[in-house]
Design a protein around this nucleic acid. Structure first.
Lengths: 206, 206
DNA sequence: TTGTTATTGTAAAATTAAGTCACAATCATT
DNA sequence: AATGATTGTGACTTAATTTTACAATAACAA
């Protein structure tokens, strides 16, 4: 097998394919085509076929793709055939909302540790989680072997929290703080910032 | 003046420049260079210069950029020299967290209407907003002239809510529901879905 | 004034990604 | 056995992005 690096932009589209395919599953659709899938998510049929072909042959000529099988294959590609433990740092309104969000569990992500540095919050329970003191962040995360963390602390604290997380063994960070984190290569960071998205859209409005 | 279409990906980087520049302002930094700005956000100096040059000449050779002036110029480019009104649909945990988030106001976005279809929530107050019945969505939004909406309803309801919003005059949607919306051309949609981001990152983990 | 250093704006080149098209191969159905 | 649908793929084109390089220029020091 030839190992070639697959462009990150291609990898980034796979979760969207998966999302649409899972909706099809829920609606009882057993089979689909690159055409149909493309229409559902606004991507050309050719591009979907090309993206998928980077990973293998998942369809059948004349028939298309078995939705269940393609979901299974995408799970394997994206390493979703296991439950991923998550750490959550920052239990403000957003942190609380994420702790209660059912979507994580439904997709194989489980928040197993929550932290805050506010004594008024430490010890309280949210969605079955006891909020822990941020001072214990490193021992808890390294002992539990958690690899992914979500940061929902204020911007001013985000960089140092991120460094602690990396120090504790975290390899991927979903950053909700409105700041660009500077971290060692090999740590994957994805940012979620509504302000950035809104400012992008206003360019196109009057 | 020659009007040329600027690639969307360039526009999408401007808010990140703005974010970093505002942090510099807060720290009292008066002048910066494409080099320094690039290091702060992980983008090459050349790309920043090229991106900015699409819109005009904002720097001085030998000196760099006045942070305040560049912030001002980016505000003008992104149409941020006004307060933008936002509608928020779906007052679950996430909707509530967004309603309370101070960041919107700090960046010139003001949530002026909140909706839900749950009778138990309608009429309640959150962060100074009275939650309104989703049935009134269209008249309220069109009368107030709101152009941007955020959707935080369950996936099953998101498409029809989005259609109602467009019908009411909404031109841009920040979609938190885990589904790809199908809407007329000319409506700008940005998606925020943590699951998609997490699934993208797990590809790179073991 | 002159030289030195820093930095922009931009052109050219290189690279990367996306889109298009075509079509043999194959599968299901009639 | 014929028909129609659809994949996987290769070739090609087009478009977009990134990198490189450097002349022009500003600030500053001697």
């Amino acid at each position: 097998m030839i190992t070639k690096t697959i462009p990150d932009i291609v990898v980034g589209r796979l979760p969207r394919y998966l999302q649409a395919l899972k909706h099809m599953l829920q609606e009882g659709i057993k089979t689909t085509s690159s055409q149909e899938l493309g229409e559902a998510i606004g991507i050309s049929a050719a591009q979907i076929r090309k993206d998928l072909s980077q990973f293998g042959e998942f369809g059948k000529q004349g028939t298309g793709y078995s939705v269940a099988y393609l979901v299974e294959q995408l799970h394997t590609i994206l390493k979703l055939n296991k439950v991923w433990d998550l750490a959550l740092v920052g239990m403000g309104d957003l942190g609380n909302a994420l702790a209660r969000y059912q979507g994580f569990a439904e997709h194989g992500f489980r928040i197993v540790a929550a932290f805050d540095n506010d004594p008024a919050k430490i010890g309280k329970e949210v969605a079955g989680l006891i909020i822990q003191d941020s001072h214990n962040l490193k021992p808890v995360i390294s002992q539990m072997g958690i690899k992914i963390a979500m940061i929902t602390v204020p911007a001013a604290a985000a960089q140092s929290v991120a460094e602690e997380l990396v120090d504790a063994g975290i390899r991927a960070i979903l950053n909700y703080a409105p700041i660009t984190l500077t971290l060692p290569a090999g740590v994957y960071v994805e940012n979620i910032d509504p302000i950035i998205k809104l400012q992008h859209m206003t360019y196109y409005l009057e």
